[in-house]
Simulated assay, not measured.
Amino acid sequence: MSIRTICVYGAGALGGAFATKIAHALSDEVQVSVIARGAQLAAIRENGLSVVYDGENHPSLSARVTATDDPSTLPPQDLVITGMKGHQLSAAAEGISSLCNDKTRVMMILNGVPWWYFHADKESRFAGQQLPELDPDGRLWALVDPRRVIGCVAYQGAEVIEPGRTKLNGKGRFFLGEPDGTLSDDLNALAGLLGRSDLDIRPTARIRDEIWAKLRGNAAFNPISALTRSLMVDMMASPELAQMVRKIMNEVQAVGTALGCQFQSSADEQFASAHGFGPVRTSMLQDLLAGKALEIVPLNGMVSALGKLAGVPTPTCDTILALTKQLDVENRR
Rank of each mutant, 00 (worst) to 15 (best):
L227Q: 10
N57G: 05
F221Y: 10
L99K: 08
V160C: 13
R148A: 06
V312S: 02
V233L: 07
D28L: 01
T5Y: 00
D287C: 03
R246T: 01
T166M: 11
S266D: 09
E178P: 14
P313T: 10
P136W: 01
R45H: 05
G128E: 05
G95E: 05
S33M: 03
G217Q: 07
A13G: 02
D318L: 04
P203H: 14
S124V: 05
N57F: 00
L289G: 05
G276I: 03
F263D: 03
Q130G: 03
G278W: 08
V149L: 14
G55L: 04
A39S: 14
L61F: 07
G260Y: 02
S50R: 15
R332A: 12
W116D: 08
M108I: 14
A290P: 02
G16S: 02
S2N: 09
E123C: 03
T324Q: 01
K103P: 02
G177A: 02
I248D: 10
G311M: 11
T104V: 13
A305I: 01
I22S: 07
G151Q: 04
V153L: 04
N169T: 11
G311T: 09
G38S: 06
L89V: 07
A254G: 00
A36P: 07
R229H: 12
R216E: 11
M284G: 11
V252F: 03
T257W: 07
E133H: 13
N47V: 00
V297R: 02
L79G: 11
S98E: 01
A17K: 02
A272K: 12
G276K: 08
S72I: 01
L259I: 02
E295T: 09
V255F: 04
R206A: 06
I161H: 12
D135T: 01
S60R: 14
A274W: 00
N218G: 13
T5P: 00
L187W: 11
L323W: 03
D137Q: 15
L134H: 08
I109N: 14
P132T: 09
I3Y: 00
D209A: 08
R148L: 05
A91R: 10
I320M: 11
L299R: 10
N101R: 12
A205F: 06
H24Y: 14
I150L: 12
D78T: 05
L140N: 03
